[in-house]
Computed example of a mutant assay.
Amino acid sequence: MGKNLVFQIPAYTKVNSTFPKPSNDNYDYWVPLINYYLPKSDTIEIHCWNEEIEIIREIKCLNINMLEMQDEKITIFKEKKICTLSDYLFNKKLDQNDNFKWFTVNLIYDGVTVFHSGHWGTEFFVPNAEERDILLIKNVIPPETNLHKY
Rank of each mutant, 00 (worst) to 15 (best):
L5M: 10
F7E: 00
R132G: 04
S41P: 01
Y36N: 05
D42V: 10
L135E: 09
C83V: 10
I76Q: 09
L136H: 11
N26F: 04
P32K: 00
L107S: 03
M66G: 15
K80F: 13
P20V: 10
Y37H: 02
N16M: 10
I46G: 00
W30Y: 06
G121F: 08
K149V: 15
K80L: 13
F7H: 03
N97F: 06
I76V: 13
K101S: 01
P20T: 11
K60G: 04
N97I: 01
N91W: 09
D71I: 15
P39W: 08
Y109A: 13
D25S: 11
K3F: 10
I59T: 06
H116S: 14
K78D: 09
G111R: 02
N65Y: 14
D95C: 01
G121Y: 06
N106F: 08
E144I: 04
D42E: 08
E131C: 02
I134S: 07
F90L: 14
P32V: 01
L67I: 15
V31I: 14
I53E: 08
D87K: 06
P142H: 01
K73Q: 13
D25N: 07
N146E: 12
K101Q: 04
P127K: 02
P10Q: 08
E68L: 15
W49K: 05
K138E: 15
T84W: 14
P22H: 11
G118Q: 07
E52C: 03
P32G: 00
Y29V: 03
D28S: 12
E45D: 08
E52G: 02
Q70W: 08
D42Q: 07
D87W: 01
D95L: 02
Y29A: 05
L38T: 00
G121I: 11
L107G: 01
P22S: 12
N35L: 02
C83Q: 13
V140H: 00
K40G: 03
I76E: 11
K93N: 02
Y12I: 15
E123V: 09
N35R: 05
F103E: 03
Y12E: 15
V6L: 10
V105A: 07
I53K: 03
T104F: 05
F100E: 00
K78V: 04
Q96K: 10
C61W: 06
E123I: 10
E52A: 05
R57M: 01
V140F: 02
C83W: 07
G2F: 05
N106K: 12
F7L: 01
T13F: 15
G2N: 03
M66D: 13
W30K: 00
Q96G: 02
N63F: 15
G111D: 04
I76T: 10
K93P: 00
R132D: 11
Q70L: 13
N16L: 12
D98Y: 10
V114T: 07
I74G: 02
L62Q: 11
H148D: 14
K21V: 13
L136Q: 07
D42Y: 09
T84F: 12
L38G: 00
K78G: 04
I74Q: 09
D87E: 14
D110W: 06
D28R: 07
L94N: 03
Q96T: 07
N24F: 09
D42F: 11
M69C: 15
E68W: 15
L33D: 03
T18R: 12
F103I: 02
I82N: 12
G2W: 05
E131T: 09
I46Y: 04
L107E: 07
E131H: 06
I141Y: 00
G121S: 09
K81C: 07
D71V: 15
R57W: 02
N50R: 06
